[in-house]
Each structure stands twice: as C-alpha cells, then as structure tokens.
C-alpha cells in the first residue's frame, strides 16, 4: 500500500531525510516516532506528495508520487500538525466542501458527510460553526475532512496534540476502526502514550533516518523480571546459556529478559533457575510498552 524506497530530502541548510525505506500494508497502523526535528513531518509531506524528494521513490497504492502526484492526492488523507479550518463555515459546510473538493458530489457527498460526521462524533453539531467548537471537536472535524473521501492511506501528524483524555480515547477508537476498514495509517507523534493503543508497528526516526531499517514491533510483547533473594554472580552466565532468551538488563541480583516461546518457555526458565539453586524471590511478567520498544530501538540505533 505505502512503499518508500531510499527517500532523500534536502532543505537548503540540512539533509532532512537520508535514505528512508519501508512499506506499510492495508490495515496496518504505523507509529512514526522520534524526537523533534527527526524528519517525521517532512517524511509525511513526501508521502502525501506535497513535497518532492531529492531522490528515491514513494508509491501509494501503486502510484508514484513524482510521476502522478495528483492521483496520489486522491488516494491519501493528510492531517498536518498545524491545520486550519474555515471558521466561519458550519461543520456541515466544511465537510461538504471537503467532499466536493475530493470529487465526491451530489447525493454521494451528502451520504459521505453524514457517515463521516457520525464516525468522528460530530453528527449532532452539523449546524455549528467551526469557530464555536472546542479544540477536541475541531480536531475531529479536521480528521473528518481528511477521511470524507475514504482514502486508501491516512497520514496523521501529531493528531492528539492538545486533546483531553476523553478525546484521545475517541481518536484511538476512530483510528482502530479505520484500520479495520482497510486503510493503511501512519500516525506521527513524539508522545508515545497516545500511540500505545492502536499502533501495530513503529517507525523510529532519528536525524532523518529510520532506526532498525523499517518498522519494528510496537511493544505489546512480554518480558520477565527475575529478582533473586540473594545476589548470585552466576546469574548472567546462566541466562546467557539459555536458548531463546534475550537479556535486556541485569546484575547479580536481578535481570530483565525477553523470551521466545510463551508460557512454556517461562516455566522452563524458572525450572532451570530453581534446579541450579538460584534463590528466586520473584519471577514476574511485564508488558513491553511502546516507550520501552522506542527506547530499545533508540539504544540500538546509537550502538
């Protein structure tokens, strides 16, 4: 659905993207994360065919952004980090304009407006002016404008910035629903907590390049924290000798490990430690958060 090959983008004083390469499929929600200035917004603008890369290829649903940017525009919905609305128009007029401008007209436009307003929770505000909406509702209207034509790919740049927890929750539900409907979605943010609920994979950017050469697991895995009742210098070697175990951190009295193999692997490890006379005081599962995955990727990228 979204294919990116060795994209390079230059500003007059710096290289913003350095050979970015990845793919995203329908139904996938990629979290695009990285510090400010990493190149996230530039990458999204290249994907939306708003900016032309210096070199490399971007294809959306098989259409090259440089060969036919206008067709790409029809296939994507892009919400910039700083977006504008026509404040003097009503919610309905904003959505009708968005639909008409995307070649959705007549009865189809009316249906699209009703469907979109319902999906972003604005169906009871159709006659309100955009200027009368709260920040959260404005955000919903902006997202509504980007999805009213049912794009194949949706690109959201910091969509939850400034939203209250309730609005973030409804945004999360909306993104999950759109992904289930078959859209490929990329959501950029540097607030990892907001991406936790709906991301299926993560693109980590730093200094214009992707860390890990493409999407990495967006957390959600399981790891085990082992705590001994008494420090034992053998622990590190004992864990290193086990197959299918990755030690993330540890010392003589504790360790944090990731295991391949599910509950059986956990049970086997625990049995081995007990048989080897380690005084295991605690053997607890921990969920790997997006932030953990991000920090691990960043650490890997620096190494």
């Amino acid at each position: 659905m979204i294919e990116v090959e060795d994209v390079v983008y230059d500003y007059p004083t710096k290289r913003a993207l350095r050979g970015v390469r990845f793919t995203a499929e329908r139904g996938q929600v990629l979290a695009l994360v990285g510090p400010n200035g990493a190149g996230k917004t530039t990458l999204l603008r290249c994907l939306a065919a708003l900016d032309r890369p210096f070199s490399g290829k971007v294809r959306i649903d098989g259409v090259d952004t440089q060969d036919d940017p206008r067709r790409v525009h029809e296939k994507v919905g892009y919400l910039p980090d700083f977006y504008g609305l026509y404040d003097e128009l009503t919610v309905e007029q904003n959505l009708i304009y968005a639909a008409n401008a995307r070649r959705v007209t007549g009865a189809k436009a009316r249906d699209a407006v009703q469907r979109t307003a319902a999906s972003v929770g604005l169906d009871d505000r159709l006659k309100s002016r955009a200027s009368e909406l709260s920040r959260g509702l404005r955000q919903r209207l902006a997202i509504g404008q980007t999805i009213v034509h049912e794009p194949a790919a949706l690109l959201l740049d910091e969509p939850a910035a400034g939203l209250d927890p309730e609005a973030r929750r409804s945004l999360s539900d909306l993104i999950t629903g759109l992904a289930k409907g078959g859209m490929a979605i990329i959501v950029s943010s540097h607030i990892l907590a907001e991406l936790e609920d709906y991301s299926t994979a993560m693109l980590v950017m730093r200094d214009g390049a992707l860390i890990g050469d493409g999407p990495v697991a967006a957390g959600g895995g399981v790891r085990v924290r082992i705590v001994l009742a008494r420090p034992d210098e053998r622990l590190a070697n004992a864990l290193a000798a086990q197959a299918g175990i990755k030690v993330e951190s540890g010392d003589a009295s504790s360790a944090l490990v990731t295991l391949d193999g599910g509950p059986e692997a956990n049970a086997a490890l625990l049995r081995t430690l007990v048989v080897d006379n380690f005084l295991v005081a605690s053997f607890a599962e921990e969920r790997v958060s997006l932030e953990d995955a991000y920090m691990a990727a960043q650490a890997g990228g620096r190494a």
């Binding site: 892009y78 910039p80 700083f82 977006y83 504008g84 968005a98 401008a101 070649r103 034509h149």
Partner: peptide, 11 residues
C-alpha cells in the same frame, strides 16, 4: 490560515 495544504491535496 493553514488550509492551503488541504487545498493542494484536493482533486
């Protein structure tokens, strides 16, 4: 007013 990108993306 930051609406130009939306217009550039229109059909």
């Amino acid at each position: 007013e930051r609406t130009w990108d939306f217009q550039r993306l229109s059909a």
